[in-house]
C-alpha cells in the first residue's frame, strides 16, 4: 500500500497551433495541459481491489469485489456489474440520485457506459459462473468526473488481479467557441458549447467509449477525439507506473517475510 504522487503537471505535446487562441486558461493551464494527478491503489480493506483518483477538484474512490460466484443464473462468461454514484455534495446537481433511492438516469447511463468500456478489456471468458462488481463513488466532481471514473475503475480492476488485455483511461475535452480545452474544470464544462468524452485502451490504441454532448463541428469533433486519446495515453502511462510501484512494494514485502 503506497502513496505515489505525480506531478506537478503532466504536459501533453499536441499540435498546439491549430486551436491555440488564448494561451492561458482561467486556472493558468495551457489548453492542452492536464491538472495534476494523484493516484493510489489498494486502500480499501473490504474490497478485492481498489483505486483512488484525484485530479484537480475531482476525487473518486473505486472498489472491485470479486470475481466471486454469481448468485443468479449460470453463465458461460463471467458477468460484470458497474455502479457509479455521485455524492449529494459532489457539486453536480441532478447527477446524484435521491438519498437511498435508486440511481438517477445519468448514473444509470454512466454505469452502463462504464460497463461497456471495462468489458472490452476484461477477459470475462476466464471467469465462468462468476460476477465482478465494480462500484465507483465520486466524492467531488470538479470537472471530467466520468472520465476519471473510468481511470479509477481500471486501476481497481488491475489491483484486484482481474485478468485484462489492456488498461483503460478516460479523458474529456471541452469545446469553447473555437478553442479545445483538455481536462476541463467544472466551470469550463458549464460554459462549453460541447464536450467530448473518450474511453481509451492504450495498448490496442482503441476508443472503447465515446460520448459527445452539446454542439460540436465535425472537424473539431475529430480533433477532440485525437486530443482525448493523447491525453488518455498519458494517464495510462501514469497508471502503469503506479501499478508497477505497488507490485514492487508487494514483492519486496513478500520477499522479506519468506526469508
Amino acid at each position: 500500500m503506497g502513496a505515489i504522487t505525480y506531478g506537478p503537471l503532466v504536459r501533453i505535446d499536441g499540435e498546439g497551433a491549430k486551436t491555440k487562441e488564448r494561451d492561458v486558461r482561467e486556472d493558468g493551464r495551457r489548453w492542452d495541459e492536464l491538472r495534476p494527478i494523484y493516484m493510489r491503489v489498494g486502500m480499501l480493506s473490504t474490497a478485492t481491489g481498489s483505486g483512488y483518483f484525484e485530479g484537480g477538484g475531482t476525487k473518486i474512490f473505486c472498489a472491485v469485489h470479486g470475481p466471486r460466484p454469481s448468485a443468479s443464473n449460470y453463465t458461460i462468461d463471467g458477468t460484470m456489474h458497474c455502479d457509479v454514484r455521485w455524492a449529494q455534495f459532489s457539486g453536480r446537481e441532478g447527477a446524484a440520485g435521491r438519498q437511498g433511492d435508486s440511481m438517477s438516469e445519468e448514473e444509470r447511463e454512466l454505469s452502463s457506459s462504464l460497463q461497456r468500456t471495462l468489458a472490452s478489456a476484461v477477459r470475462l471468458e476466464n471467469y465462468p459462473k462468476c460476477r465482478i462488481d465494480v462500484s465507483a463513488f465520486v466524492l467531488e466532481d470538479g470537472g471530467g468526473g466520468f472520465a476519471a471514473v473510468t481511470t479509477a475503475a481500471s486501476l481497481a480492476l488491475a489491483d484486484a488481479g482481474v485478468e485484462m488485455t489492456d488498461i483503460m483511461a478516460g479523458s474529456t475535452v471541452a469545446v469553447i467557441g473555437k478553442q479545445l480545452v483538455v481536462d476541463p474544470s467544472a466551470r469550463e464544462e458549464a460554459i462549453a458549447d460541447g464536450t467530448v468524452r473518450v474511453g481509451f485502451a492504450s495498448q490496442r490504441a482503441k476508443v472503447t467509449d465515446l460520448m459527445q454532448n452539446g454542439e460540436v463541428d465535425l472537424e473539431q469533433f475529430r480533433e477532440a477525439i485525437k486530443v482525448c486519446c493523447t491525453a488518455s495515453a498519458q494517464v495510462c502511462g501514469l497508471m502503469k507506473e503506479c501499478l508497477v510501484k505497488k507490485a514492487k512494494k508487494w514483492l519486496k514485502k513478500r520477499g522479506r517475510s519468506e526469508m
Binding site: L44, T46, A47, S50, F61, C62, A63, H65, G66, H81, D83, R85, S102, M103, D133, S135, A136, F137
Partner: peptide
C-alpha cells in the same frame, strides 16, 4: 456505499 460491501445498493 457498495464500495464498502460489494453488494448493490
Amino acid at each position: 456505499l457498495p464500495t464498502a460491501s460489494g453488494e448493490s445498493r
